[in-house]
Design a protein around this nucleic acid. Structure first.
Length: 571
RNA sequence: GUACCUGUAGCUCAGCAGGAUAGAGCAACGGCCUUCUAAGCCGUGGGUCGGGGGUUCGAAUCCCUUCAGGUACGCCA
């Protein structure tokens, strides 16, 4: 039930104004800052000019002509606003019945039906460790993937792996000089990264190594067996570890087509650019001029003819458009790549493709450590494994202290510890810079992942105890018993779920779901503290309140799932 | 130099396709467990929304300007 639309329809019928539509009224409807003022409000200020009347007079006159309909108990003019009071029992019934009936599907919609949304996220570099710098792209992308699916789109998750380039030439040189098979197999990425760092130190003294590295990369490009075998092996070793991390984080992809995949697809892009007379020579390199957009030129080919980052992204965009016919293609990367995306998006436009408008860069703020910028090469990183392990260890300690008899302690600690980190990552607008803080990330109190999980576990616990005692007695619920302020507060939030998810998708902002889930948890905890459920002494009241608990549990679980966070029943 | 991002309570941030007294968490202080998980709940204090102009019946929200912090600007990705 969409109450906003219900009210808009009532207003529309009363207003009798051809300039208005139900949709435009829906957009004008607000929720008053204070529930005592009403449940929904319609501001009349905008009509002052057209009607040549003061807003309070318009509100008063219109107010008297609006039909109450099925769900509205009272309509009051207040200043320039018309305030609507819902019939609380009806409201409770509509919300609870819909959630009980739809379960985990509650809040879903079909607004994106038949449309593919591609999401390019995570995209780590092979042979480099997975560290906190990769967390944001991975989790924002994952959450958007879930959110778009939830409102009817078909999400396609793409991990555009950094699996090609001169750095592999360097890796081969380093491996042949200092590496051995056993250590790499045992230590994995850690050893590969050690070799890579060692290479850079050595190359400072001995620049001839760079020539060697370049020639190995040329061998890779020309299909040399030894070079390709080593490259493939480095990739496999890295992927084993990345996949473990993705499994731990609960993140999946539909495609791992990375840089190497587009190797043979760039030539066609260069040819098309030439054919369309967009390619211009400049200082020996080939560029697309973007002067008219007030942007620096986009580099397509190096002086030596080699391709560049934009060349590959353009080739990938064509491949994706042809393969998936996306209605949107999202790139989840840090804000510092803003110009890069703006430039090559324009190149697509210059080539005459209208789907330039469907390419969207979704930037997020920079992550830094208190010791400065993140840098794998300089060793200024916090590894994801270390971060997750620390969070899980803390969760395990708290469980030992608060709930020592809990079964499956370790599994629950894993869910709670990782949940805390993911939640923290999705708590603010993407664009905010982040100064990494271990203490903050593994905080379990206040507006945190564990807080919401805990609320969910509480709800589960009450439901479990209720069904143990008497099983499900499917009796009719008396919704008149659920008209107290804390219950209504819960229903209002439950009714907003779909709207919030759509807003999150529209703005590409998972935090809207994160904050929603916190608000719902807060409203429920208030309800829980004010109303005794199992021992309230009245069977009808108990059944009614259990229905609230059940609905909240369902929606909290849905919300957490959208964010990529587990919702344990006990903790 | 040019462009982009950010600036709201001591800290971290919501609120910004304009609307009713600017909200939350943390931190501080004070209450609440013989009853459903206290990872919780309730309460108190704390803000010239970076500064200055403008548009408007109305501006944290839109426009201009200015200051501060961050980032990017050709052969890495």
């Amino acid at each position: 039930m969409d109450f906003t639309k219900e009210i808009a329809t009532l207003i529309y019928a009363a207003a009798n104004d051809t300039a208005l539509s139900i949709e435009s009224i829906v957009e004008m409807i607000e929720i008053p800052p204070n529930p005592e003022m009403g449940d929904y409000a319609f501001p009349c200020f905008k009509f002052a000019k057209a009607f040549r009347k003061a807003p309070p007079i318009i509100a008063k006159e219109l107010c008297e002509t609006i039909n109450h309909g099925e769900f509205v108990s009272d309509i009051v003019a207040n200043g320039g606003y018309i305030n609507f009071f819902m019939d609380k029992a009806c409201f409770a019934r509509e919300v609870l019945q819909e959630i009980a009936q739809k379960g985990a599907s509650y809040g879903k919609s079909t607004v994106g039906c038949g449309q593919n949304v591609l999401i390019d996220y995570s995209s780590p570099n092979i042979a480099k460790p997975f560290h906190v710098g990769h967390l944001r792209s991975t989790m924002i992308g994952n959450a958007l993937y879930n959110i778009f699916n939830f409102i009817g789109y078909t999400s396609v998750g793409i991990n555009h792996l950094g699996d090609w380039g001169t750095q592999f030439g360097k890796m081969i040189v380093a491996y042949k000089k200092w590496g051995d098979k056993e250590t790499v197999e045992q230590e994995g990425v850690k050893e590969l990264n050690r070799l890579y760092v060692k290479y850079h130190d050595a190359a400072k003294e001995q620049p001839s190594m760079d020539d060697e590295a370049r020639s190995w990369f040329v061998k890779m490009q020309t299909g040399d067996d030894e070079a390709l075998q080593l490259w493939k092996w480095f990739t496999d070793v890295s992927m084993i570890e990345f996949n473990k991390m993705y499994e731990r984080l609960g993140v999946t992809f539909d495609s791992f087509a990375g840089e190497s995949f587009y190797n043979d697809k760039m030539e066609a892009v260069v040819a098309e650019l030439k054919e369309k007379h967009l390619l211009v020579e400049s200082d020996g390199a080939m560029i697309v001029d973007l002067e008219k957009y007030n942007m620096p030129p986009c580099l397509i080919l190096r002086r030596d003819g080699g391709t560049l980052y934009p060349t590959r992204d353009i080739a990938a965009a064509f491949y994706r458009k042809n393969t998936y016919d996306f209605s949107k293609c999202l790139y989840i990367t840090a804000l510092d790549q803003n110009l890069h995306f703006a430039q090559w998006f324009k190149v697509i436009g210059e080539m005459g493709y209208e789907w330039e408008k469907d390419l969207v860069h979704i930037p997020f703020g920079l992550v830094s450590l208190d010791t400065g910028k993140l840098s794998t090469r300089e060793g200024n990183v916090v590894l994801m494994d270390d971060l997750l392990n620390e969070a899980v260890a803390k969760a395990a300690n708290i469980i030992d202290e608060k709930n020592p008899s809990l079964e499956n302690k370790q599994q629950v600690a894993e869910k709670v510890g990782i949940g805390a980190i993911v939640f923290n990552d999705l708590y603010n607008s993407r664009i905010k810079d982040v100064l990494f803080s271990m203490d903050k990330m593994i905080n379990f109190e206040g507006e945190t992942g564990p807080y919401v999980q805990y609320t969910h576990a509480r709800a589960s616990s009450v439901l479990g105890k209720a069904s143990k005692v008497e099983g499900s007695t499917a009796q009719a619920i008396d919704y008149q018993l659920l008209t107290d302020e804390s219950s209504v507060g819960v229903f209002k939030l439950l009714a907003q779920f779909n709207e919030k998810v759509v807003d999150a998708a529209y703005k590409y902002e998972p935090y809207i779901v994160t904050r929603y889930v916190v608000d719902l948890a807060q409203a429920f905890n208030r309800f829980y503290n004010e109303n005794n459920i199992l021992n309230c002494g009245d069977e009808n009241l108990k059944q009614a309140r259990l229905a609230v608990v059940d609905a909240v549990k369902t929606v909290l679980a849905s919300g957490l799932t959208l964010l990529g966070i587990a919702a344990p029943d006990k903790m």
